[in-house]
Design a protein around this nucleic acid. Sequence first.
DNA 1: TTGAAAGCGCTAACAA
DNA 2: TTGTTAGCGCTTTCAA
Lengths: 367, 367
Amino acid sequence: MERKSATRLDIAKRAGTSVSVVSRALNNSGYVAKEKKERILRIAQELNYAPNPVAISLQKRRTKQILFYCRNVDNAFNIQLYKGMLTAAADRGYLVLFNGKVSFEEIRNTLVDGIIMQDQGLAGYYLSRYGKNYHLPVVSAAYGEVLVEKTPAGIPVVEVDTYRVMETALDYLERCGHRRIAFGTPYPAESMNVRTAAFLSRMRERGLKEAGSLVLAVSRRDERLREDARLLAFPEETAENLNLVNEDFFGKGKLAARLFLERKMDATAVVGFNDEFSLGLICGFQEQGLRVPQDVSVMGIDGIGARKYVSPLLTTVSLFPEEQGAMCVQVLLDLIEGKKIRHVTHTGFRLLEGESVLPRASAAKTP
Amino acid sequence: MERKSATRLDIAKRAGTSVSVVSRALNNSGYVAKEKKERILRIAQELNYAPNPVAISLQKRRTKQILFYCRNVDNAFNIQLYKGMLTAAADRGYLVLFNGKVSFEEIRNTLVDGIIMQDQGLAGYYLSRYGKNYHLPVVSAAYGEVLVEKTPAGIPVVEVDTYRVMETALDYLERCGHRRIAFGTPYPAESMNVRTAAFLSRMRERGLKEAGSLVLAVSRRDERLREDARLLAFPEETAENLNLVNEDFFGKGKLAARLFLERKMDATAVVGFNDEFSLGLICGFQEQGLRVPQDVSVMGIDGIGARKYVSPLLTTVSLFPEEQGAMCVQVLLDLIEGKKIRHVTHTGFRLLEGESVLPRASAAKTP
DNA sequence: TTGAAAGCGCTAACAA
DNA sequence: TTGTTAGCGCTTTCAA
């Protein structure tokens, strides 16, 4: 079965020359007599020679592979990030490994040149675990589910400016004539996250004092976690649990739709924490007999592909996950290759109009 | 930045001993005086030592990594396969790389011990390209979009018995009282694939002569491709194109729903090629003003997670992609480790009832 | 119990 | 142009 494959030495022997000549011939580098080269190439062919990438990596001290450390394969956003990574990495001759099952310990046994962390929560945890003593370059994506007051020092981050994203969503709704706008989140009200914070901040800026009452939060955390938001950013004890967390954004969204009615929330539109949550909202509203957008408008954030499954088509602010993923790769590879990089890189976003938002009669004329 | 990390030799020097002792101490293998061991461990800590996995791999001639060669990240089924692989591999101490962007040439530069091909089309192409001269163990999953008369010799395959899957779907519909059942496929009628073949075969067995007229095919192939079905199984020239193929099953399904009406197909139920196509069917029917399942029943095959987004909930035959993926890993690792393996491994499936099939008045009593 | 030594397969500097 | 040599960092045999 596992017939040992030929090495450069085997070829050298057969060709009556030395490994270094063979190497040069095979790699197209350095001097080697034309005739000899052809001979070598032919013999390599005959021997069905294939280079051993591990040996090359050891010698070059570079594997040309990087790891996307992602614990939630189910999250469409992450998959799209990954897609972007694959392409960007391929362009630079790198492969992207994907894994989130291994522990941090095991990460170190991975044959890669660097790591992209799925979000700042994980990145922060990694940092708190190893301090600056990790050996591999690390870059983090960001997903806004965790409030990180300072981005973890030492780990560059590629993120979107959540505040501006939220502003874009809310501006759009206001242009459509919506005044009372709720924000639906799968997280408990106490566990502040970037997106909720952005919503509150933006609403308060507009003079809305009781913005908090427009936050439609689904679940509640244990009392003990309430005190310190940083516990959430850098969960010490709970980090291993992240492995299991299979966040059901869709389900939470459906539930939120129910709560929206139960709580008789006074809003004509709801911005969901992310697209999947918002798809759940739509589904939930429809199950409750409400029409979207006639009875209630829904907006998402992310721009995931699964939008297409649901009608009405979800209006959203796309974060272009593929581009964000690609950017993570660029930054990481620059880091690996010793180039100067920025500690924070912002990526783009854009409003994607669908049919889930109703332009109301009171809508302002577009300026 | 990239401060060179300590090696076992560095530790040995500091500890005033030799690399082999350090190795034994670190690996917990062989003899080493207790005191010395502690000393070594402490120094390793101080030096912030981390073993070099590439060197270990070279020495052991094993990377503990395998590759899932998958060209379509968008296909939910593939992602679920992958999920299953991750878990199964982790259990055996392996990591699963994911890539489909690299060419076959580049695959060989990947630091892995084996490859899982996304489907038999790719596996067959790989085989036809390299003959038996690939150096890495290879296993193939199967997805039924290609008709492979014999599974490519030499490449073990993990698949589901499509005929029995189809039978399960059709039996169920018949038990629900459906007699005229169509089969929707995104592929042209001429390009026979396993699932369509299974449908036709099953229908003909039941005495339906004109089963072909119940096949709802969406697109047409070039004439030149008609003649030889094996061209589709092992596309010589077109294989590179697979890279680009981003099959829009959902869109095709929507289109098929339209065609269903245009062609005035005489059927009360449609089995879709796969779940995504069937979700498209549902969406398409609804857009055309038909109610599912009251006006037309829809069934899928696959059991993908995205079913949850659509209402009514799709009734399907689940192929348990996670389990199939896990099985691919088992077979590949067995192969790598030199164990005996079967050339064909069948994985399970089961009917998953949703709400997209109408039990008709004429339904037979369940026996 | 220890450590010297011979690799794993390949690269690259340097001398010839 | 070519070939020798010295590694890359680690494992493992074997003699001490």
